[in-house]
Nucleic acid binder design. Structure first.
Length: 436
RNA sequence: UCCGGAGUAGCUCAGCGGUAGAGCGGGUGGCUGUUAACCACUAGGUCGGGGGUUCGAAUCCCUCCUCCGGAGCCA
């Protein structure tokens, strides 16, 4: 490899180098030619640029070097940055030197034409190099960073729960079972119970890690492995947790709008829709929601679960997320506290994203009374001895506490305007997708 | 698990009883300003597997497999 003489620059910084000589290190995205001139589009992971190679500048040898490169061959180029209004991005590189690093061993499977989703998912490891996927990954990164900044700035401590667990958190969902030195162990489907321990130790914490659901769900909203953020706050009640969720969402949306305009444009997401995500979010209780749904023609009765279509009907009434709260206790997990004014109801809430994107947050206040919680565990057919450590939180200085869980991939899908969560994570795990 | 839909060239698809097709991608050649460049030529197929009907099946029937969308369940 020839040592470059001009400084190595990333394309995201190219605007500061107009008129100067630079070295770019990247991959060939596409190329065109006309007689003794070559047009080479190079990407370096931070952007794309068209490089122009004329026989007058790079000679027959340079042209041959360009011609040897195929799509996604790696290459180091040197040249002069030139402002060019016709070029996407506003700049071109006038080539002086072309150094192939590795000529791809075969035809790159993903051509710059249309492909089906199944094919692209089979080639996910290569699909990630495309402009659109790069933009989504950057937005995902910024959402993660914003969430962490939000909690860190408010004095929360990151508290990592285990992934191997000995029992179900919520009894209902299906768990992935593994062999743990001869004993069955399950991949965590929620860090919440452990988060509650953290809240009692540290006051306010958040967990942030992968969770696993072995449900055979085949929808655009489901992954078997997904990332969840679960804050838990001691001495907090249901509406405190809802207000926290509201502040967090607004903080994250603001951050994406402030730092990822370019990426939103790349994926054709209209920022005006996100600008509307402002406090306060509407709050509608389950009982009222049922009435709204009946009037909209849904066949639903009090006590029924609110399904995907029903969620869309409700969220379509607003241009921002909406809280659904006070569900029938029977629909919710054993650890959820009941409403003292109406024990049929649970002190829980869901946050429904607009545009039919569905539930992105579920949360509420936890049952904090020892005897009541023991009874709930038994009612749900769970073994009390599996939860002794969890019950200890109610034995030693129990306090009201509340929290919520945010599904990261659903949030990314919503903010990016994607119809399916599979593009929001580098390597999605779904019922029929374990590879790559 | 249930209900729909789809499997034909590397990719996206057309063909739906009578010789296997197109566009893109690949290869070769041409062109000094191309923008998913263009022009010419070219290679490339067990029509998802198995069974059946028929003189003849990619096409009709049965069966299995795989994938996609939705329901249930959930974030």
């Amino acid at each position: 490899m020839v040592t470059p003489t001009a400084p190595h620059v990333y394309l995201q910084d190219i605007a500061g180098w107009d008129g100067k000589d630079v070295t770019l290190k990247g991959w060939l995205y596409n190329k065109r030619s006309s007689g003794k001139i070559r047009f080479v589009i190079v990407r370096d992971g931070t952007g794309l640029i068209q490089c122009v190679g004329s026989i007058n500048d790079i000679g027959d040898e340079g042209l041959a070097a360009v011609d040897s490169l195929t799509q996604e061959s790696s290459v180091i180029v040197e040249g002069t940055v030139k402002a060019e209004p016709r070029a996407p991005g506003g700049f071109e590189l006038v080539l002086k030197k072309v150094v192939p690093v590795h000529v791809a061993l075969g035809e790159f499977p993903i051509s710059p034409k249309e492909h089906g989703t199944a094919f692209l998912m089979d080639n996910r490891h290569l699909w990630l190099r495309s402009k659109r996927q790069v933009a989504i990954m950057r937005i995902r990164h910024s959402i993660v960073k914003a969430i962490r900044d939000f909690f860190d700035e408010r004095g929360f401590t990151l508290f990592d729960p285990p992934i191997f667990t000995n029992a179900a958190c919520e009894g209902t969902s299906t768990l992935f079972e593994t062999d743990y030195f001869g004993e069955p162990a399950y991949l965590s489907q929620s860090g919440q119970l452990y988060g509650e321990c953290g809240a009692m130790a540290l006051g306010k914490i958040y967990t942030f890690g992968p969770t696993f659901r072995a449900e055979k769900s085949k929808t655009r909203r489901h992954l078997t492995e997904f990332w969840m953020i679960e804050p838990e706050v001691a001495y907090a009640e249901m509406w405190d947790a809802a207000a926290l969720a509201e502040d967090m969402i607004c903080f994250v949306v603001r951050r994406v709008l402030d730092t990822r305009r370019e990426e939103l444009t790349a994926i054709e997401r209209d920022p005006a829709i996100l600008e509307k995500i402002q406090k306060p979010f509407p709050r509608i209780c389950y009982t009222d929601a049922i009435e709204v749904l009946k009037k909209s023609g849904h066949e639903i009765n009090w006590g029924d679960d609110i399904g995907g279509d029903e969620e869309t009907t409700i969220s379509n009434q607003y241009d921002r997320p909406v809280f659904l709260h006070h569900f029938p206790a029977d629909l919710k997990a054993f650890y959820m506290k009941r409403d003292p004014n109406d024990p049929k109801l649970a002190l829980g809430f869901d946050l429904l994203a607009p545009e039919g994107k569905g539930e992105v947050i579920g949360g509420g206040q936890r049952e904090d009374d020892y005897d009541t919680l023991v009874a709930r565990i038994q009612e749900h057919g769970l073994k009390v001895e599996d939860f002794e450590w969890f019950l200890d939180l109610r034995k030693y200085g129990t306090v009201p506490h509340a929290g919520f869980g945010l599904g990261l991939e659903r949030t990314v899908a919503w903010l990016c305007g994607l119809p399916h969560v599979r593009e929001t994570i580098p390597f999605p795990r779904m019922i029929s997708r374990l590879k790559p």
